[in-house]
Simulated scan of single mutants.
Amino acid sequence: MSSPAPLRILGIESSCDETGVALVQTQAVGWPRLLAHGLHTQMRMHAEYGGVVPELASRDHIRRVLPLTEQVLAEAGLATRDIDCVAYTRGPGLAGALLVGAGVACALGASLGVPVLGVHHLEGHLLSPFLSADPPEFPFVALLVSGGHTQLMRVVGVGQYELLGETIDDAAGEAFDKSAKLLGLGYPGGPALSRLAEQGNAQAFALPRPLLHSHGLDFSFAGLKTAVLVQSKKLPTDEAALAQARADLAASTQAAIVEVLLKKSLAALRQTGDQRLVVAGGVGANRALREALNLACARRGVRVHYPELALCTDNGAMIAMAAGMRIAAGVDTPIKRYAFDVKPRWPLDAIAAAA
């Protein structure tokens, strides 16, 4: 019996402030492979406003998505006629931004007469480590730390996700960004705070670790943000002393966030008995977090997997990959249906019911 013909899947990501386009190809054996990808970040545009402006984000997606598609196809040495399926981020995310990607994907699919597939943004992050040189194997525990999401999931297979714990207020990424803003750092705040933390003493400020010793696996970072606000108002006014105090507060803030993420991840591994941990999402690129997880997991004989650094933020490759994996696993069958909707709020553990 002959193997099914490989599918070339174009993926479009437009959930927030990055426009991503990528092309993957399914294989007879193993998961799809990445052929090419392109990414445009709106970071500089939104920095002027200190945060993402949804209307501006949507307009910029409109400007970028087709040129990026042409760039990706050229890089892969292919033409639009070579596309077999178009995948797009259906949610969660900014409604207007999602509609741009969904509209372009469905228009392109209709013009080519190929099927389309809406993909869950967080599933894209969850499966993005399969694009790396060291892909994981099922089952595993996943720590999803992306933007406004902090979750622990148990992943048995493609589309088989069990929510173990999630944030009850601010997510880790929000704690980084909001703390950075309190320290007068630019946008995006998380990377800026991490850079400043390298110059500081992580023991200088005794900041809270909310829910660290609770019996559950939920997270809470709102109290930490409040503590940073209180300490930021007590910083010295002397210029030299202020610079060091800001670095110390940044380091202490990062240490608190990392400790909570580390301890909860280890607790999830103990609870499930799994020996693999996947870390995905923008905060997964944080060097301090990676070092802490690598050290703790090595001591316990647990394998840790990350996406490539270039694929930690939102990108089209993870959307194309998630679509390819769902098709390969028989979880989804893309159809030639070009009427679309988007889901700005879409829990990952409800994906089977919402597909």
Rank of each mutant, 00 (worst) to 15 (best):
S194I: 07
S132E: 05
L94A: 00
H46V: 04
I62N: 11
D349T: 09
A320R: 06
M1E: 13
A322R: 05
G38I: 11
N294L: 15
Q231H: 14
D274M: 07
A240D: 10
Q254Y: 05
K263R: 14
L34A: 10
C16L: 08
L266S: 02
P129A: 00
M43A: 15
S232G: 05
Q71T: 13
L311F: 09
I168V: 14
E239W: 06
V258A: 03
A28G: 08
A222F: 12
F138T: 04
A79Y: 07
W31T: 14
T89G: 04
H305T: 06
L185N: 08
T80Y: 14
K225P: 06
E162F: 06
G101N: 04
T333K: 10
L207Y: 10
M321C: 13
G147R: 00
T150G: 12
G51L: 09
E123S: 13
E259P: 08
V29K: 14
V53N: 02
S15V: 07
Q275Y: 07
D60T: 15
D238F: 03
P210M: 02
F176A: 04
S15K: 03
A180N: 02
L10V: 11
D170C: 03
L309G: 05
G93E: 01
L56Y: 07
V29Q: 15
H149T: 00
P4T: 05
K233P: 10
A79K: 11
S132V: 07
G147D: 00
E162G: 10
V331P: 11
Q160P: 07
G273T: 02
G189H: 02
G30T: 06
V104Q: 05
N315Q: 11
A247P: 01
G186R: 15
L152D: 02
L163V: 04
G284A: 10
V116W: 08
L164M: 07
H213A: 14
E239I: 12
A142K: 00
G324I: 11
V302K: 04
L98W: 00
G20E: 09
L99V: 08
L261H: 08
L348E: 04
F205M: 01
L309M: 11
A175H: 04
T69M: 12
G157E: 13
Q42T: 11
E75K: 15
S179P: 05
F130N: 11
D177V: 03
A328T: 12
A197P: 03
L10N: 06
